[in-house]
Amino acid sequence: MSDRQAKIRELAAAALAEDRVDYFIGWKQGINPSEAIPAFVRSADEVDQLIWNPLSHHNLTTFLKRKMPDPPNARIGVCVKGCDSRTLVALLQEELVDKERIYVVGVPCDGVIDRRRVEKEFADEVVDISFSGDVVTATTRCGDSKEFAKGDMTFDHCNTCRYPNPVYADDMAADPVPEPEDRTPMWGSIEEFEALSPAEKDAKLADAFETCIRCFACIHACPVCVCWDQCVNRCRRPALVGQRVDTKENLMFQMVHMFHVAGRCPSCGACDRACPVEIPLYLLHRKMNKELYDMLGFEPGVSLEEKPAFQTFKLDDPFGEH
């Protein structure tokens, strides 16, 4: 058992036993050991289901946003990784979550596994994923097994992560992991995209959004997308986004989402991981992050004292020049 996992259980048990929270949200094993899923623990004697490993990808702060807590005024304990903590900070900046009702356990993170990337290495169903140092071993239902280097199977946003330690937490599950000294973001595949011609970009976007089924998993999994039953994408008054499901309207829907969460979204990738047809939504949000950084030097969700980029105005903002 990892130290972090033990500490998460200990902190959760204490918070529940001392009645500081009504329930505690962490991760637990899913249908089989090849995946982790959100866990909702209500009493101290149930904390043993909580786990921490590189499959713990869910950004649990989405369960704090409007209309998610049950009952609505519940006091909630929650685990956050570095990127998750930034979405939480974004929610706190706009007072979309009541700081007094949450208890935050920060978990330093070494990067999480893109399970779909592992799945694609097999035709059969992957039923077990285990870790030993930097080696990931995946096993299928038929018993076939393959080993991978962990770095080859982690998400893009983990590979370029500059905030592996939570920027906001009440308690930490471990000492911070080493952080990069230079926090200048690395944009990787965004720069590849930017190098394309407009026609090539169009083609790439059309290809990506053709298969969207408008299930809204992306925006519901998104911790900073809070409109819920008032979402402009479903609204008919005004009817800004057509309900017809085609590449153009699908892209419009995602663009609306991208612009609406601009300045709050640190591109944690929750939308991407929730998409049932694997549209690379992360890249869209990453691109917006790059624009914000290049234009305003702004990084979403890193400081409680800041406001989201589009809610403030400074005289030296590039928009002020005109």
Binding site: F40, K67, F216, H220, A274
Partner: peptide, 17 residues
């Protein structure tokens, strides 16, 4: 029902697939 729905994010994926 409340306990089972805790981790539901109220999207429509299950119904669309």
């Amino acid at each position: 029902w409340h306990d089972l729905a805790m981790r539901c994010i109220s999207c429509g994926t299950c119904t669309y697939v």
